[in-house]
């Protein structure tokens, strides 16, 4: 059974990923660590506890982490996720409490005690991970692989012309993680947008009807699909974090990916937060290519949605 820690800025789509992980028989979640991103870290922590409640399986410890990006304040995404990050629906309060240990300390302690077999999934900004890497590089080097929801391949992103939210929210932290040396898979925003990955109007309703947990997974995303309805005239639901979890659990769901030497741009007038994918050494560059990542740009949409549905239905 694969052992994992999930680092999350729990807002709506994170909640679905957390539920999926807790219900996936091939995986044991050792801990959730939280970070500011979609929503502030206090709310993210509460939302993670609530997701555990509604997953209705076992209860891994939840550790609260860092409240702001490394170097500069950034924006949140409440317009997509609601003020509480969970669609402002009014779900029941969780019974579990957060741990007193800091998320960064918990990461270092748990990974340090492991045997190099604990994998990391990040579905928020990379602030906690970067700080843990700075504080305990030798421990963090024991991580065999990191799966990251983040980055963008093409220039058509909602937030800036070429940066995806999780990376843009803390580009400095992301740069530390990319340069650290642990190989990673990046599930880009477009992987969650193309090839039938978004849930359709019908699929949203069908999932809602599949039990309390599945209803929770849909309802906590209502701000997103209501916004889609207002703008496009129909409901549609992109779920980047669940796609990322699905790809982690079942790599066969990947349709298109490529190896790259990935950098995160920290400077730049227009490009701060851009994930720069170096795929070849151009004739004008002296430095050899050093592949550090796999970039996922497409998944099999229907297969991913079936995988997700099977995990969250009752």
């Amino acid at each position: 059974m694969r052992k994992i820690i999930i680092d999350t800025d729990t807002g709506s789509d994170d909640a679905v990923a957390l539920v999926m992980a807790l219900r996936d028989p091939s995986v044991r979640v050792l801990a959730f660590t939280t970070v500011s991103g979609n929503i502030n870290v206090d709310q993210a922590t509460y939302n993670a506890l609530q997701s555990i409640e509604y997953a209705n399986t076992y209860k891994p410890p939840v550790y609260k982490g860092i409240a702001r990006p490394l170097c500069f304040e950034s924006e949140n995404a409440s317009q997509v996720h609601g003020i509480d990050g969970m669609g402002d629906v009014g779900f029941r309060a969780p019974t579990q409490k957060e741990e007193s240990e800091h998320a960064v300390d918990a990461l270092i302690r748990i990974i340090g005690a492991g045997e190099g077999d604990i994998e990391l999934i990040t579905i928020g900004p990379l602030t906690n991970i970067a700080v843990a890497m700075l504080q305990a590089p030798e421990v963090m080097r024991k991580i065999p692989h990191i799966t990251i929801m983040g980055g963008a391949n093409f220039f058509s992103n909602p937030h800036t012309p070429c940066a995806e939210f999780n990376i843009m929210a803390d580009p400095d932290a992301a740069a530390i993680v990319c340069n650290f040396g642990v190989p990673f898979t990046m599930v880009t925003l477009e992987a969650c947008q193309v090839n039938g990955a978004p849930l359709t109007d019908e699929e949203i309703d069908q999932t809602r009807a599949a039990g309390e947990t599945a209803a929770f997974c849909m309802d906590c995303n209502c701000t997103t699909y209501d916004l889609a309805e207002k703008v496009y005239g129909y409901r549609e639901l992109e779920l980047p974090d669940p796609v990322t979890y699905a790809v982690f659990s079942n790599p066969d769901l990947i349709k298109t990916s490529f190896p790259a030497e990935t950098h995160v741009e920290r400077g730049g007038t227009f490009t701060r937060g851009t994930t720069v994918f170096r795929k070849k050494k151009t004739i004008f560059e002296e430095r050899d290519l050093k592949i550090n990542s796999t970039i996922v740009t497409e998944v099999y949409g229907q297969a991913y949605k079936a995988f997700q549905y099977d995990l969250i239905k009752d």
Partner: peptide
């Protein structure tokens, strides 16, 4: 892009 690292110098940032 005229600022930032050598990785992005000269990037044509196409905002669609």
């Amino acid at each position: 892009e005229t600022q930032g690292s050598a990785q992005v110098y000269g990037a044509t940032v196409n905002d669609r």
